[in-house]
């Protein structure tokens, strides 16, 4: 079965000052596929994820989502280089990409349900009643129907992260980005979040997941990518990369986390 490309990264480069974070990343994600990015901290995997929805600006290379160049307009500047888009255009592009953060980043002044409905009502201009009904449906999906009226401060970390997933899903994205979604959680709360993500993957959502949960990657990922020091060291199916790594660096990393 060949599915069409949803995300295509070509030679993506990024510097923070003198520090070369991404040294030319080439990746492809097909529709309905789950890609897990593994690698030691500082390897550039989170930065790459944040480049996809243009939370970080790339210094070189191109990222396409559903055939659209992210954050830049092709050939609009002199010398034919791509020029950065206006904030409104970037905002419009981001609407079809959901993101879940390590630190949840729920809006503390809004209840769980209001967190979910804020963007559909205010940005996508959905009907209020419809957005609320859909918000309740999403809360049911992440197992938090009883907490619709709770403020984030009164929810556990695991509950907050599940609300954050529901919030991202409310904009009906075609792609979901997860930036170490379980790293800030107490060990006993990790399972609930991973099971929501597992269900989401089964429902056919295209997902890119930066994670240290090797078990999750082995079980759910279609493609595992191991990054180190700003480059892709190796990529392939979980059985290849996790169970039979070809590179010394991959082996050393897996030994240290397993």
């Amino acid at each position: 079965m060949t599915r069409s490309l949803l995300v295509e990264a070509r030679n993506v480069r990024k510097h923070f000052g003198a520090h070369h974070v991404l040294k030319g990343i080439d990746l492809e994600v097909r529709r309905g596929e789950v890609m897990c990015l593994l690698g030691p901290s500082g390897s550039g995997k989170s930065t790459f994820l944040r480049c996809i929805n243009h939370l970080e600006k790339v210094d070189g290379g191109r990222i396409y989502v559903d055939g659209e160049l992210m954050g830049y307009e092709e050939g609009t500047s002199p010398k034919g280089r791509a020029r950065e888009m206006k904030p409104k255009q970037i905002a419009a592009q981001r609407r079809s990409i959901g993101m879940v953060f390590q630190r949840f980043n729920l809006f503390p002044h809004l209840t769980a349900l209001e967190n979910i409905t804020e963007a559909p009502i205010g940005v996508a201009r959905h009907d209020r009643a419809h957005a609320r009904a859909r918000g309740m449906e999403l809360l049911r999906r992440v197992g938090l129907t009883d907490h619709a009226g709770a403020y984030p401060a009164h929810l556990s970390g695991g509950q907050q992260q599940r609300v954050a997933i529901a919030r991202a899903l409310a904009m009906e994205p075609k792609l979901m980005l997860f930036d170490e979604p379980t790293s800030a959680l107490d060990p006993e709360l990790v399972g609930d979040v991973l099971s929501v993500m597992r269900d989401l993957a089964r429902s056919g959502m295209t997902m890119i997941v930066v994670t240290h949960e090797i078990g999750f990657a082995r079980e759910v990922a279609d493609q595992v990518v191991f990054m180190d020091d700003g480059v892709v060291v190796e990529s392939g199916t979980p059985s290849h990369v996790i169970d039979d790594p070809q590179h010394e660096r991959t082996r050393a990393f897996l030994d240290s986390v397993l």
């Binding site: 981001r94 609407r95 993101m99 980043n105 991202a168």
Partner: peptide
């Protein structure tokens, strides 16, 4: 700053983010 990133990731414009997310907090 995570609030700004979360708002932007949902497709909110800078002005909307300021008005609905940052100022109330």
């Amino acid at each position: 700053n995570g609030q700004v990133e979360a708002a932007h990731s949902l497709g909110m414009s800078p002005a909307y983010t300021l008005r609905r997310i940052i100022v109330p907090q």
